[in-house]
């Protein structure tokens, strides 16, 4: 777990962090969201002491990081950044092996680990191990960047817009692969983003920041559905209700009464937004939500979506 208590960072003429108190629970992914200059990257960088706060306390698994050696602290925390920062003079395998090498892990096990990570990132080890970063596409480079962050199997990951520099199609693919991976690995992740869709898709918790302080912290549905301030409401913009549908699972709204034979179907993990789009696209009266095993568990109609939103006080 990462715990920030009243963390402040004062630079010469501006305050980057204005008293941040935040807990990131073990095994959860917390997205730091907000406009540029809101302090999200600075907050992220305080965790591995790339930035030392002016005041306040940060503990990682109960240990105050001020008492840790910064270099050793960093070797125990995964780090991936938007510009990736792969070492251009080292092969993909050497790049991924950076932290294990620094930790003095035996060569043979590092090599096996590199192959395992490339596999996780859907990159064929035989083809990619020996390549240099200049020979990778943007998406491949970011996958290698994430693999490098995971290399020493750290319990905590810091990710600063790790999928920022990829084209939209590749970005969607990398995101959902990463989400799948995180469901398996259950790392504690602090993830900086300025992309609302990305935050809603990946986050267990969203922390919306503004001017170096937390504006609102909660589950995506809480933050999108019940904005704590006009700023939050404005941040999600005019399609906030559509975003809210994206944070709600169709399975939670589905009822057996709304089941219709021959209705189009959507998968278990689908959002209400997926359900609504399906209803509109197919012109069907209802859509059937399948459970994890592919059996029909209930139907969703436009009416039931409206009732669900009304119950949350959304349709005014």
């Amino acid at each position: 777990m990462i715990a920030f208590t009243d963390v402040r960072k004062q630079y010469e003429n501006h305050a980057a962090l204005n008293g941040v108190t935040l807990n990131v629970e073990e095994g959860t992914l917390c997205v730091l969201l907000g406009p540029s200059g809101c302090g999200k990257t600075t907050l992220l960088r305080t965790v591995n002491r790339l930035v030392d706060p002016t005041s306040g306390t940060i503990t990682v698994n109960g240990r105050d990081i001020r008492n840790e050696n910064p270099v050793e602290l960093r070797r125990g925390i995964g780090y991936a950044i938007q510009s990736v920062g792969l070492f251009p003079h080292r092969t993909v395998a050497e790049n991924i092996a950076t932290t294990p090498d620094l930790l003095g892990m035996p060569r043979a096990s590092v090599s096996a680990r590199v192959d395992e990570l490339l596999g996780m990132m859907k990159l064929d080890p035989a083809r990619y191990r020996g390549r240099y970063p200049a020979e990778l596409s943007g998406g491949e480079a970011q996958r290698v960047g994430v693999a490098r962050a995971l290399a020493a199997d750290p319990p905590i990951l810091l990710m600063d817009e790790p999928f920022g520099a990829v084209d939209p199609i590749n970005r969607a693919a990398i995101r959902s692969e990463f989400l799948e991976l995180q469901r398996r690995l259950r790392k504690t992740i602090l993830f900086v983003s300025h992309d609302i869709q990305e935050a809603i898709l990946l986050a267990d918790r969203i922390t919306l920041m503004r001017n170096g302080a937390i504006e609102q912290h909660g589950t995506p549905a809480e933050v999108v559905g019940s904005p704590a301030s006009p700023f939050v409401e404005e941040f999600f913009g005019s399609d906030r209700q559509m975003l809210l549908l994206e944070t709600l699972r169709a399975a939670d709204t589905a009822t057996p009464e709304a089941l219709h034979a021959g209705a189009p179907t959507i998968a278990y993990g689908s959002s209400l937004r997926d359900a609504l789009l399906r209803l509109l696209a197919d012109g069907a009266p209802s859509v059937t939500v399948l459970d994890a095993n592919g059996a029909a568990m209930g139907g969703v109609t436009v009416d039931s979506i409206q009732r669900h939103l009304a119950a949350r006080g959304e349709m005014r």
Binding site: N48, L50, Y79, I81, G85, F87, P88, T99, G145
Partner: peptide
């Protein structure tokens, strides 16, 4: 040497000496 490369090296746990020897000098 790009700032991002240096930042990654530091963030991954290289000491200042290691950054010079393993990243800056070769580049």
């Amino acid at each position: 040497v790009p700032e991002a490369t240096r930042d990654a090296a530091r963030g991954l746990g290289m000491t200042n000496m290691q950054i010079i020897r393993r990243v800056e000098l070769p580049l």
